[in-house]
């Protein structure tokens, strides 16, 4: 203990020197702007009214948020999106990981190809799907028609279907990713556990439930938390595909904020929303970090 403390002191000036460039930069280019956001969220920084002198309005922007049905709606939509997308991605991810883990031939090829969806720029994904799903000229409609699949052909007219498409688009992009994360987790489980379980006569379902799942738990939690936080950043794909519509059925919080800031130019209201979003994500981030750091100490 004593020795360790001396070591810490020794390194302090080195640590400062090595950290300084990065943290100085980050402070200037992220903390600064974030504090600026905090500041304007307390002001009436309205630009479309003439002669805009910033007026201090206290918590008005924050209070407005809770009276604004569109804000409440987009928050609800975001959570709905998050819940559905993450659950589907985790299930598919686990299945994919187990499948990849149980094959030996072509595993490398399969993993390489699995990478493709998450590497395509989200903007391109949105465009790709809108072309693919075009109700008149899209490949999807043709497939449904020709193969007589019991699926709806027009997906963007109904609020529910549009939301499902937005969710599936995310699932398309990210479940391969979770699959690979979980695969890494599966591979780190020592074969001894399985042998011991087999010796005890456990069925494969039991092995999954009592051996695989508990040992996978850390990786699962990491995957879930990461995706949950990332879904708060959802913007490009629905922005291009549905533009938040029909109505505001798929208007997730980032699109709503973008609209407030860069279409309606309600900068201070948008800033207040940003602050709230930031706080939510900081809480998630803390959970994540606790988990990652906790894992490290073991």
């Amino acid at each position: 203990m004593f020795k360790r403390k001396r070591k810490l002191q020794n390194y302090t000036h080195l640590a400062v020197a090595f950290h300084l460039p990065a943290f100085l930069t980050l402070t200037v280019i992220t903390l600064g702007p974030l504090l600026y956001t905090l500041k304007i969220s307390f002001y009436d920084y309205k630009i479309s009214s003439s002669g805009s002198e910033d007026v201090f309005v206290g918590l008005k922007n924050y209070i407005n948020m809770f009276h604004d049905m569109e804000f409440v709606n987009s928050m609800a939509k975001t959570f709905l999106f998050m819940l559905c997308a993450v659950v589907l991605e985790v299930i598919l991810g686990v299945v994919l990981a187990m499948a990849l883990n149980s094959i030996t031939r072509f595993r490398k090829l399969f993993t390489s190809l699995t990478l493709i969806p998450m590497m395509v720029a989200p903007l391109i994904i949105g465009l790709m799907f809108s072309f693919f799903l075009n109700p008149q000229f899209g490949l999807y409609v043709w497939l449904v028609d020709t193969l007589h699949l019991p699926l709806p052909t027009v997906l963007t007219d109904s609020p529910v279907l549009a939301m499902i498409v937005v969710i599936l688009m995310d699932v398309w992009e990210w479940s391969p990713y979770l699959g690979l994360v979980f695969l890494a987790g599966l591979q780190s489980i020592s074969g001894e556990y399985y042998e011991a379980a087999k010796v005890d006569g456990a069925s494969s379902a039991q092995i999954f439930q009592y051996v695989t799942l508990p040992l996978m738990k850390p990786v699962l939690v990491v995957g879930i938390l990461l995706r949950a936080m990332e879904t708060f950043k959802e913007f490009d794909k629905p922005f291009i595909l549905t533009g938040g519509g029909p109505g505001n059925a798929t208007e997730v919080i980032d699109i709503f904020t973008y609209r407030q800031a860069f279409v309606s130019f309600n900068f201070s209201y948008a800033a207040a929303i940003c602050v709230v979003l930031f706080i939510i994500l900081q809480l998630c981030g803390m959970m994540y970090q606790k988990f990652v750091m906790g894992g490290e100490e073991e």
Partner: peptide
């Protein structure tokens, strides 16, 4: 490290607004 994570998980739109103005 927590500070770093916080920055990493900040939605783009949250930073885009002040960065634009600045």
């Amino acid at each position: 490290l927590n500070y770093l994570l916080g920055t990493r998980f900040t939605p783009v739109v949250v930073l885009a607004l002040p960065l634009y103005l600045l």
